[in-house]
Simulated scan of single mutants.
Amino acid sequence: MKEARLYLSAAELLDSGGAAENKVAGSNAILSGIAAADAICGLVLGERSSGDDHAQAISLLKRATHPSTKAATSLARLLTQKTPVQYGADAINASDAANLIKWARDIVQEAEARDR
């Protein structure tokens, strides 16, 4: 949980910056969402996804959360952007970075609700 919060804080610090800041903010948001999803799965199921199969991570999070939450949908959105944001050469704009931060925040809030 602590890692998820720290990644999210770092992403929010860089929000609305230039091209490099947007890319780093987006990357930190993705890492935040993954860490929060792992925390949820660990707390609820006693396990987390550790492979490269993103579909498995999403499926596991769906099992750990209520269908009405945004967590699994937000994780799917983040994971779709993981490779282009973290490994791609193209810049991302402020709007894209803001979306990544929003999706990460959805998962962190869900994790925090369970970590009380």
Rank of each mutant, 00 (worst) to 15 (best):
A19D: 12
A19C: 09
E21L: 15
E21F: 06
K23T: 12
K23G: 05
A25W: 06
A25Y: 05
S27Y: 06
N28K: 10
A29N: 11
L31H: 12
L31E: 14
S32N: 07
G33E: 04
I34S: 06
I34W: 06
I34V: 15
A36W: 01
A37F: 10
A39W: 03
A39R: 14
G42R: 07
L43Q: 13
V44G: 06
V44E: 12
V44S: 13
V44D: 01
V44P: 05
V44H: 09
G46R: 08
G46V: 08
S49V: 01
G51A: 06
D52P: 07
D52I: 08
D53M: 02
D53V: 09
H54D: 14
A55D: 15
A57T: 02
A57L: 01
I58Y: 03
I58M: 00
S59E: 12
L60N: 07
L61N: 03
A64P: 05
T65P: 10
H66Q: 13
H66L: 08
P67H: 08
P67G: 04
S68Q: 14
T69Y: 10
S74P: 00
A76H: 11
A76T: 02
L78R: 12
T80L: 02
K82G: 01
T83H: 07
T83V: 11
P84T: 07
P84H: 09
Y87C: 01
Y87S: 03
G88M: 02
D90Y: 03
A91Y: 00
N93I: 00
N93C: 09
N93Q: 03
A94R: 12
D96F: 01
D96A: 12
D96E: 15
N99G: 04
N99Q: 14
L100D: 04
W103E: 13
A104I: 03
R105Y: 00
R105L: 01
I107A: 11
V108Y: 10
Q109S: 11
